[in-house]
């Protein structure tokens, strides 16, 4: 029993690392993606081409490759970062790419009659987006965003590849040392607990939005 508690505490330290990556990614990628999505639905041609290239590159290459590029590749170009910075940057930019496409689709799914009504009431583009389009788009993008949020929990395990002592890596260290399966079971439970919290949070948000 004591062994399980000690192992759990050790893995918990790794969990904190994973959670940090998770929190930073969630906090920065969402507003960034909203911003990019608005750029994609705008009439600005150059901006649209740049954003198209961006989502193509970051959705089209492995996250692990991007992580390696940030941590091992950028120093060659003279940019050195701590593992945490490299991981946070990569995850933010990568997840923002996926979320950009989700939010863009959400915004484009709003009926053009909504824009016409807003226009006929004298609302400008920013007011229309902020008050009419985005609030409705949010409701529609909640389910796919929840998927991304759950995927992110598991993707944080990739940071072990650049030497960070995250949840999975901590578990594996214990396993290598003690030759027992228990740390993996504990790690799995931690991942499941985190996913469960995310599902609950999204359910609450969805309930809030289903008043209409």
């Amino acid at each position: 029993m004591e062994y399980i508690i000690n192992t759990t505490l050790y893995i918990l330290k790794g969990t904190v690392v994973s959670l940090k990556i998770y929190a930073v990614t969630a906090i920065f990628s969402v507003p960034l993606a909203i911003f990019f999505a608005l750029g994609k639905v705008s009439k600005h041609k150059t901006l649209k081409i740049v954003l198209e290239a961006y989502t193509w590159i970051f959705r089209g290459t492995p996250l692990l490759l991007q992580l390696f590029f940030a941590y091992y590749g950028l120093p060659i170009l003279g940019i050195t970062m701590t593992p945490f910075m490299a991981a946070a940057l990569t995850f933010i930019v990568n997840y923002a790419a996926y979320l950009t496409e989700i939010f863009r689709a959400g915004i484009e799914s709003i009926d053009k009659g909504q824009y016409e009504a807003a226009h006929s009431l004298g609302m400008n583009y920013v007011q229309t987006m902020r008050r009419v389009v985005i609030p409705q788009a949010i409701r529609r993008v909640l389910p796919p965003t929840c998927n991304e949020a759950i995927t992110l929990v598991k993707d944080t395990a990739l940071v072990a590849a650049i030497g960070m002592a995250d949840l999975l890596r901590s578990a594996k260290e214990v396993l290598t040392r003690d030759f027992t399966i228990i740390p993996f079971v504990i790690a799995a439970l931690f991942y499941l607990a985190m996913s469960w919290v995310i599902v609950i949070v999204f359910k609450k948000i969805e309930q809030k939005y289903t008043v209409y």
Binding site: D111, G113, Q114, E116, A117, S120, L121, G122, N124, V132, P135, Q136, R139, Y209, Y212
Partner: peptide, 21 residues
């Protein structure tokens, strides 16, 4: 222009109410 077109109100065939309000 965009400054005076709001002197005209409009009612649409499909209502176009804001469903989230």
């Amino acid at each position: 222009s965009k400054h005076n077109c709001s002197k005209l109100g409009m009612v649409f065939q499909n209502f176009n109410l804001f469903p989230h309000m």
